[in-house]
Each structure stands twice: as structure tokens, then as C-alpha cells.
């Protein structure tokens, strides 16, 4: 299984971490990859910490277990850093992407000495500025694609435009703001 990228998402029920993982799977699928997108289900309701996963590779991945040693971790809600072991098993060759207004160096001390890449993005600010409401999905998706280099920016933009047209067929007015959020996010990820 060469070239297999494994990603773990942490969010809270209702915030759309599951949807974001499925969107990522969809975007990667559009580039010809084999994908898996699956949440870890439980009886949790709105607000409870939830986990979702992606596998992205050049051939069909037969493994059907959860991901224990992800290449990247995406934290959709920064308050989770204090309650969930977000860097558990995270490869130091990879990185963690956190939704926060803070700079990477300001949150690093909470990551239990994690030595890999730490990235932040202010998805709330981007979302409010473009969509006028707080939907962290699109910014987080853009951020992880950029940081993990899952595809080039042009491919992502083309794929998402297609996907938004399909998804928002009944409310086309939200397509442009979403695209704006996507592009803005690609330039505003902080860290290295």
C-alpha cells in the first residue's frame, strides 16, 4: 500500500467533521484516488467529541479498521485539544491542523511534545467573513489538502466547484461564498 495517506478528524457532533471527511474523500476521489471516509460511530449526540477518518491511496485499500497511526490530524474544534489526546499515534513525519485564531507556536505547548508539523487556521474568521455564518468544513478541508499536499490547489478548486454546484443546487447563492472561503483558506493556513 504505497502512497497511502491516513487522516484522523476530531470534531464535535453537529460541527460537520464527518461531513468534512466525506468532502475530502470526494475531492480525492475526483482526482482518481481510492478513498475511504468513515466516522467512528457512537450513541453521541450534538456536542460530544467525535472522530472521523480518511484513507487516500493509489489503489483500493482493503483495511477496514480504524486509524491508529495517522499521517495527519485535523482538529475542527480547538477546545478538544484539552479533552482528547489529539496527537495519539500521530506520525511525526506528518502534522496536525487546528482550527484556531492563534498562531501555531501559541498552541504547541498543549500538544504533549509533538514534534511534527503544527498548523493553524482561523476557520471561524474565514467562515464569518465569506459565508456570514460559522461553517468550519470548507476552510478545514482546504487546509488539510494544502498541508498534506493531497492534490494541487487548482484541482481542489475545480473539484469543489463541481461538488458545490451539485450539493447546493437548490441554493446557488451560497456557491460563490463557499468558493471564496476555500480560496481564502488555502492562503491563510499558518505554520510549517
Amino acid at each position: 500500500m504505497g502512497n497511502m495517506l491516513e487522516i484522523r478528524w476530531h470534531g464535535r457532533g453537529g460541527q460537520g467533521a464527518k461531513t468534512a471527511s466525506l468532502l475530502l474523500a470526494e475531492a480525492a476521489f475526483d482526482t482518481g484516488k481510492f478513498i475511504q471516509g468513515f466516522p467512528e460511530y457512537g450513541p453521541e449526540r450534538m456536542g460530544a467529541p467525535i472522530t472521523a477518518y480518511n484513507r487516500i491511496s493509489d489503489e483500493r485499500c482493503p483495511i477496514h479498521s480504524n486509524i491508529y497511526e495517522p499521517d495527519f490530524v485535523v482538529v475542527v474544534d480547538e477546545t478538544l485539544i484539552d479533552v482528547v489526546d489529539v496527537t495519539a499515534g500521530l506520525k511525526e513525519t506528518g502534522g496536525i491542523i487546528i482550527n484556531t485564531s492563534k498562531a501555531p507556536e501559541e498552541v504547541m505547548h498543549k500538544l504533549k511534545g509533538y514534534k511534527g508539523g503544527v498548523y493553524t487556521i482561523d476557520a471561524r474568521e474565514i467562515s464569518m467573513a465569506t459565508l456570514g455564518r460559522y461553517f468550519p468544513n470548507t476552510p478545514m478541508l482546504a487546509a488539510v489538502v494544502k498541508v498534506a499536499n493531497i492534490m494541487d490547489e487548482e484541482t481542489l478548486i475545480t473539484s469543489m466547484e463541481k461538488s458545490f454546484h451539485h450539493k447546493f443546487a437548490n441554493k446557488p447563492h451560497v456557491i460563490a461564498p463557499n468558493m471564496e472561503a476555500l480560496k481564502k483558506s488555502l492562503t491563510e493556513v499558518k505554520g510549517a
Binding site: 466525506l22 470526494e26 481510492f34 478513498i35 475511504q36 471516509g37 468513515f38 460511530y41 483500493r60 477496514h64
Partner: peptide, 12 residues
């Protein structure tokens, strides 16, 4: 087929 593992995972 397997609940969640197959039923809810999106794959090619």
C-alpha cells in the same frame, strides 16, 4: 454486510 464498517464508510 458489516454495519458501519461497510454500511457507513464511503469508498470507491
Amino acid at each position: 454486510y458489516d454495519g458501519f464498517i461497510t454500511s457507513h464508510a464511503v469508498e470507491n
